[in-house]
Design a binder for these strands. Sequence first.
DNA 1: GATGAATGAGTATTCATTCAT
DNA 2: GATGAATGAATACTCATTCAT
Lengths: 218, 218, 218, 218
Amino acid sequence: MDTLLSKEQRIIGAAEQVFAKHGFEKCTVDEIIALADVGKGTLYKYFGNKEQLFYYLVQKKNTLFVERLDAAVKHGLTLEQKLVAFFTEMIDFYKANAALWQIIYFEMLGGNAGLMVHTVNGVPTVISRYETKPSEETKDMMIRYHLLLESEFIILKGLIESGMEKGELKPGDAELDSMSLFFGVAMSIFHPHKVVEETSCDILAQQIVDRALRGIGK
Amino acid sequence: MDTLLSKEQRIIGAAEQVFAKHGFEKCTVDEIIALADVGKGTLYKYFGNKEQLFYYLVQKKNTLFVERLDAAVKHGLTLEQKLVAFFTEMIDFYKANAALWQIIYFEMLGGNAGLMVHTVNGVPTVISRYETKPSEETKDMMIRYHLLLESEFIILKGLIESGMEKGELKPGDAELDSMSLFFGVAMSIFHPHKVVEETSCDILAQQIVDRALRGIGK
Amino acid sequence: MDTLLSKEQRIIGAAEQVFAKHGFEKCTVDEIIALADVGKGTLYKYFGNKEQLFYYLVQKKNTLFVERLDAAVKHGLTLEQKLVAFFTEMIDFYKANAALWQIIYFEMLGGNAGLMVHTVNGVPTVISRYETKPSEETKDMMIRYHLLLESEFIILKGLIESGMEKGELKPGDAELDSMSLFFGVAMSIFHPHKVVEETSCDILAQQIVDRALRGIGK
Amino acid sequence: MDTLLSKEQRIIGAAEQVFAKHGFEKCTVDEIIALADVGKGTLYKYFGNKEQLFYYLVQKKNTLFVERLDAAVKHGLTLEQKLVAFFTEMIDFYKANAALWQIIYFEMLGGNAGLMVHTVNGVPTVISRYETKPSEETKDMMIRYHLLLESEFIILKGLIESGMEKGELKPGDAELDSMSLFFGVAMSIFHPHKVVEETSCDILAQQIVDRALRGIGK
DNA sequence: GATGAATGAGTATTCATTCAT
DNA sequence: GATGAATGAATACTCATTCAT
């Protein structure tokens, strides 16, 4: 671990590696501090607890990512170009951060299997399939990560909604269409197959957008 | 818990409920045996350990599910009908078993974030992004669940491959197209939104297949 | 540690020694299980947590003690005899259990220095001298121990109240008179001096009651 | 926190508040320095450690208190007046400093439940109920606080001893009589009931002295 | 002199699994 | 076969104290 970096930086770097390697639950604070070569108190002084450390890590990455998505989308002339730019960035980022983002999807949102985040009138709310009430902390946590993913998804959804309004796309359920697309791509990266790995991000993006716009039917 | 059922049945029933409620890691064997009203030793006698119990449970459900998928696909006349029948069954099953299948996707496959299952020449292999080698048990486990999902996915992939061969579909990468579709649907159910919940399985399936075949572009 | 006793008994015996030696906070579960020669899980299976173990221990002792107090008080003919009997039992018990009862007075009731238990219309309530609200668990805990001591104190107070009503005692504030007496004796045992230690319980009780009834003035 | 005061003064002021609020163990040095608005090193530079800070604080208060007790006792003409003056001051002080003095009684003296301070031939000595020897520091600490309380108690004891010698009081064990009285009052303030709180210090003192001299018997 | 970043020993608690009855 | 009492490794988090700047 590079001792030229600040302790905070070292912790973040180590945390990224260890979280990516083991997932959230199985990652131990002890392993992070050993890799970062800092004391345990240092980690807790900077980040409060394990979950906050994880959130800090992904939230920072997400901010940059969303900026890239925004920029990519702005530079395209046509809708198709915008979509390709969006997915090029998305695939690039999701490939690089697959392990970390999988944690968000699965452990932070899916890990509490009985719970789901619903957006009711624009307000994200946690609902439970069972009688047991989740703690406020659990709810806040789920909403935090839901919002994080939403900030990525919303950009694609906006593109598709405006495309439908402008008549560039067939009318339909923008939410459903965006979801299938977005999550389809996410999952294809999480469960990697040869195609996804060996094809460059922009080619992959072009193929996906081509299929999305024109379908696979003759 | 119905005491007319065999102890084995009672354990499986209880396990399904408890796994669905808490996820794999947070589900405790104590809660299962309390609900099943059997001794702890009995559970271990029948199922060996917690993971094997989970596998037995989902593998049984999967077998039935794959049979339904096979049957559905056979009954369709046209490719489109077959696809709609496939997704109708899939959406129905995934909605009913969302919590359990989320565990497969996330905890069993994604939980060891540093590891991935690759199919090399038809042989599934676990590869690690890091230097540390996973234990044989971990590898076996991942492959088991990978194959389970593969058995569902392969049916869709077969449909699309044959469609391409027969010229009913545009030529292209059947693997990629199938994956985006399959996983897109799976994730849309795991991360539920109003549309997905309030629409019946067959309507949803029709919309999805329509988009898949003809795209959303004008 | 006598291995003929049940594990539960061994834990209770060990806990009594270790709590008495170190007080509640500084006593560690590790030391208890080492002395009891049981696994850590065993202690937690039986008693839930450290505080519940302590409460179980003192509550059991208190029940027996209160029975002894009740019996002692019943057997006396005159009020003075009853009072002497009460204090004989009290001094005997408090001497034998000084360390443990000190914990109740100090750590369980006084340890949360900003909090006090008040009895409002017969209902014990926790009030705070500061703006910060105690947790429900803290409150419940304090009330539990308050009630425990109250069950001892109430017997003396009853004696004095009835004495005042019957005209055997001067009229006055029964609460204040009982408190000074009761707590005065308790503290004299906690902060031991030669007199208290070297004098037998009944002689001490007689002296105390004599002073209480007739005062030290000429 | 008034920045016109010296850092030392600010620390003492903050410490008093925080110790009173949380007790000794649960009070954190971090909370004190935040309230005092000084660096952590400063606190340690001035006071050595947490316990010494606490001691400094209460010892300063005690010195003033003992002076007040001395003065009060000197101004009375009769023994009864002296006693009333003593308890008026004592109740006033103990009410105002209940939280802090509770710490002395419980955490500093009672916290090491297995240990007691005995005065052998005028020399305070720490004895242990168990085989394990306390550290020198622990012993010194206990003796320090024992002497602090003794400096208050000794005044009452002196009054009663001289009263007995002069024949103003019945002969008896001055130690025992003083202890019951002194600690009875202390505890009545620590475990507050309505009477104690709503009655003014001097009225309370009069009642207590009246009972002490003339008893509650008819 | 003053600071506060850094530390790590210390502790309560959980839960999958075993094995004697 | 069935049981469940017993286990102990594993882990997040706290906080008094130090010491380089």
